[in-house]
Write a protein that binds this DNA or RNA. Sequence first.
DNA 1: TCTGCTTATGTAAGCGCTTGCATTTGCGAT
DNA 2: ATCGCAAATGCAAGCGCTTACATAAGCAGA
Lengths: 344, 344
Amino acid sequence: MGKTRSAPTLNDVAKAAGVSTATVSRCLNAPERVIEATRQRVMQAVESLGYTPNYAAQVMAARRSFTIGAIIPTMDNAIFARGLQEFQNQLRESGYTLLVSSSAYDPEMEREQIRTLVARGADGLLLIGHARNPEIYQYLERHQVPSMVAWSYDPTATRPSVGFSNTEAMGELAQKVISAGHRRIAMISGRTLGNDRAQSRVDGVRRAMGENGLDANALTLIETDYEIEKGAEAFEQLMTLTPRPTVVMCGNDVLAAGALREAGRLGINVPEQVSVTGFDDIELAEIVSPALTTVHVPHREMGRKAAIELMAMVEGSSEGRSVCIKTRLVNRCSLAGPPRQQLP
Amino acid sequence: MGKTRSAPTLNDVAKAAGVSTATVSRCLNAPERVIEATRQRVMQAVESLGYTPNYAAQVMAARRSFTIGAIIPTMDNAIFARGLQEFQNQLRESGYTLLVSSSAYDPEMEREQIRTLVARGADGLLLIGHARNPEIYQYLERHQVPSMVAWSYDPTATRPSVGFSNTEAMGELAQKVISAGHRRIAMISGRTLGNDRAQSRVDGVRRAMGENGLDANALTLIETDYEIEKGAEAFEQLMTLTPRPTVVMCGNDVLAAGALREAGRLGINVPEQVSVTGFDDIELAEIVSPALTTVHVPHREMGRKAAIELMAMVEGSSEGRSVCIKTRLVNRCSLAGPPRQQLP
DNA sequence: TCTGCTTATGTAAGCGCTTGCATTTGCGAT
DNA sequence: ATCGCAAATGCAAGCGCTTACATAAGCAGA
């Protein structure tokens, strides 16, 4: 009865339907290019044979996979979740699949993930932040894989990006802090090495201090990992300082949540005794108490725009334009003026 | 200067190293089959060209992907997390990659996910439970993709499985409940339609009742989704019954956690006024209060054994043997005897 | 009925890799 | 030197699909 039983191929379907493989392929990928009668015959053959196209073969022949890769620094907290979710929604609407992996904030790991994703045929890549070994960009160019940077906007970068100016956004918040009367400013930042967003946020605070006649070098700065626990530790450390800072600006909401938790444990009232600020405005910011004064980042908008632009690049209809997203301050309760020098 | 700049292929590397593509391929996949000097030359070429093998081409030519797929009913709670984690660890150790997707307990969706995974070249599949349209198994056979069932053990099934007897495990717990003196037994089960594990657990309770001279049909049963919220709702409903059940056996710990939460809200003391039991022994079971008396399932062991056996099947060194895992009762605080009829 | 289009379908050349088999090479034993 | 054998390498045939390009089929207008 013929060949050994095995997975049906395009060829089998073609034979069963009495057409060429080209026609079957067209039936599946561009049905409007095939006449009704033929299409029905083919579809029936597909059905009765239980045919499923071989993905690897498709990718190989078409030289595209309709897959987009994203490498984010962490999946542990919600920082990237919302934006990525929207990114994915947008992609799916256009028939793309998203593959996500996390680099744990490690450049070497990121490099490896990028290679894997490219090897797996990703049509385009979403990367977080600009800071990256140029060799990587060469590699991507070589493989003709367009990439888009998000969570950071830098018009001077050669790479397109969708994001916001971390420096300006944090600078604005710092301006507000200073205007409220704070002079002894401390900051808990994420690690700035290889993280341009963290670095820019620190720069933003320093710049605002400078612009207000304060000594930017007087900023007390602790760098640590973006974890609640670490935020708590750093805050505790800051509270031992004399004189004690009157405000602790945090590199993001997660760090701020840790600081707040520790303040509670230490019996330090926020914002009466010390103010705390965050960055990102993730869900957490509203849940903690006191609710965080922070910088709102329109994550969904960013995800959506990144997806649209990246798809355009993949499809060759754009060279890659950068787009700048507006952040805005959100005033909640964790920021007030500095405490009076002495209590009555 | 020759060809257009583009991603280097095996061929490019071969030319650069002055060898054939076969040799380069061997260098990469079976280095011991190539002499030292050649290997060095090739590796250098690989390095300097920044070569990354094309995954789709590899899969296609080798007719295998070193990828294993797993379709689990849900990722929302921790039920499958631990087992799957260990499954993945074991796979990775042997060079396999795991692709996971979730079917939301929907058979149709599961079917689709299976096809996708197979199309993507999965060498083998991990499935949860036996209940499944036979057409799916035919499809897998046709595509020569071995599959392994986990979270359920059924020696009579034609498919290999790694798991435990849900009926026996739950039966044992029910026996204990009955021995403690309970007669009015209620159960909150997951939906049994298309879920053999849920069904078996119900069967287990019924069987134990029968064996103890109780009327198995007298079991008060509510079927609902495996969500904390649903467990709470069901529990509330059960508490309105007269006479009220003296024990509520839950299909899993998640449901039980919901029941416990609702008991707290209703001011019903567990286990003084009503007993509650769980199933699975996930982290949650220890955290809730009172801590759950439940059935401990050695998830990690199951994940590990499933991985080992499935890999053996993929590599053709096994026909697929079933393995039975032993569960055990864990006594914590949520189960006691029925309350005295009247209080003093 | 014939021409000249447009549209549907077929032909066949790859895509980048792996691998069975053929060939060459290296080397110890004769 | 010569032979024989094992080890190293090369050759080339696909893997299952997509897609230019070629060809056949319709069909409207003359």
